[in-house]
Nucleic acid binder design. Structure first.
Lengths: 231, 231
DNA sequence: CGACCTGTTGAGCCGTTTCAACCGATGTGG
DNA sequence: CCACATCGGTTGAAACGGCTCAACAGGTCG
């Protein structure tokens, strides 16, 4: 019996739908690993040596400039795939935001296996296309939205993404949730400074749009207002 | 003999490497089409009815807000693939920037064909992964770079992308080229206003970094300076 | 020639950043 | 046990970069 048999993202990750012999083969290639909050898993511009499935936790994908500015270019949740298959170098660093568990594969092995299993490649393609859609929507935010719009859009997005971490049927957007991000990370995600993020949060709170019971907790009091603000 | 046999992007598009019977099958599904500069090919949020290969010309992928702000989220050059396979709606509009020729497929047909031909799906996956890398690099620009840095990065990027439109071996970045964009489109690509773009161009010219013989023509006089400015 | 379109230039304004001080929670060592 | 440092976050004041609005320039086309 492989670790996959009890994997909690087994039915949502790219492994979903693979037949038993394939799962077994994948299982022997993969290795479970934990990554502590703040710990890197992949370095930008490094040789792309490994890919992984996220089992539990949240990780950020970032790119940086020479002078240290950072932009979060993606966020990986459970069942998401990370790393750069079929490429020599990875374009982004991957760092855990929360303690996380991942299922890692040597890129070589994974590439070879994927090429031999079209069903897996198809899943990967669907995922990559969806991620590209999301990324493009985020470009709109980065290039054209104001700070209040960015924050509102961000909160609505979080409310959807963090809704069903479990395996239940789709429950709709969450009214309250805990951000996996510090203020600095929210800033890096939205292309703002930490101070601007803080001020916008305070403003939303003052206007009664959200409640902020703690640093990381958000409760949406007036979703319609947020949607209005999101632009 | 199918149109594919004489297709000028035959060896660079996703069709590359397909065996003859497959090419023939694809050929019967596809249809050549011309798109005039400014003419749309796909509408944002519409049902995703068609996908295409770019044969000649340049097209922009854009998303817009309700109040009319626009962000260019991608640019398609010859041999690039456009449209959203395996999805119900397309997340971006596609509009020709120059007169263009494309090879279009009904999305249904293409999806079915792709699923039956792993080699094609693999090509599509590689392309999509590369596009995702590029898109993420652009997020860095949108979120974290200043106007001068954006313009410098843009010019360097153009210089590479427009280098070998032909089929010759890689010739390195172009020293001079013709932009397929109006000032407004450059602004929409960089998340700036048209006035800021214009001022930055003027500044680069005044500093002797580039020459601008006409509205659309650029000649890079001091590449090192541009690379410095690009941040 | 005049209308029109694209792009440039100027002046002033506004939003975001910058820089700095402050706050509250957490943790530590004397 | 309490002074004290630390860390993440908030708040304030001022500077600045890019935006807005408006006028103007250069081509092109009727």
């Amino acid at each position: 019996m492989s670790a996959c048999d009890t994997c909690i993202v087994r039915n949502r990750a790219i492994c979903a739908g693979l037949e038993h012999p394939e799962i077994t083969a994948l299982s022997t290639m993969g290795r479970r690993r934990t990554v502590s909050a703040g710990e890197p898993l992949i370095w930008e511009d490094d040789d792309s040596l490994l890919v992984a499935n996220v089992i539990e936790g949240v990780l950020k994908l970032t790119t940086s400039t020479a002078d240290g500015r950072e932009q979060i270019v993606g966020v990986a949740y459970p069942s998401d795939f990370i790393g750069r298959p079929f490429g020599q170098t990875s374009a982004a660093s991957v760092v855990a935001l929360t303690d996380a568990r991942v299922c890692v594969f040597a890129r070589n092995d994974f590439d070879r296996f994927a090429r031999e299993h079209p069903e897996l490649e198809h899943k990967l393609l669907e995922r990559t296309l969806a991620e590209l859609d999301r990324t493009r929507a985020w470009m709109m935010l980065l290039g054209r939205k104001s700070a209040p719009e960015k924050i509102a859009t961000f909160l609505l997005d979080m409310s959807e993404r963090l809704a069903d971490n479990g395996c239940m049927a789709h429950t709709g957007p969450a009214r309250q949730f805990t951000l996996p991000f510090s203020r600095q990370q929210v800033a890096d995600l939205l292309g703002l400074t930490i101070e601007t993020v803080s001020r916008q949060f305070t403003k939303l709170k003052a206007d009664g749009v959200v409640a902020l019971p703690s640093r990381r907790d958000v409760e949406i009091l007036d979703r319609a207002a947020l949607e209005m603000l999101a632009g």
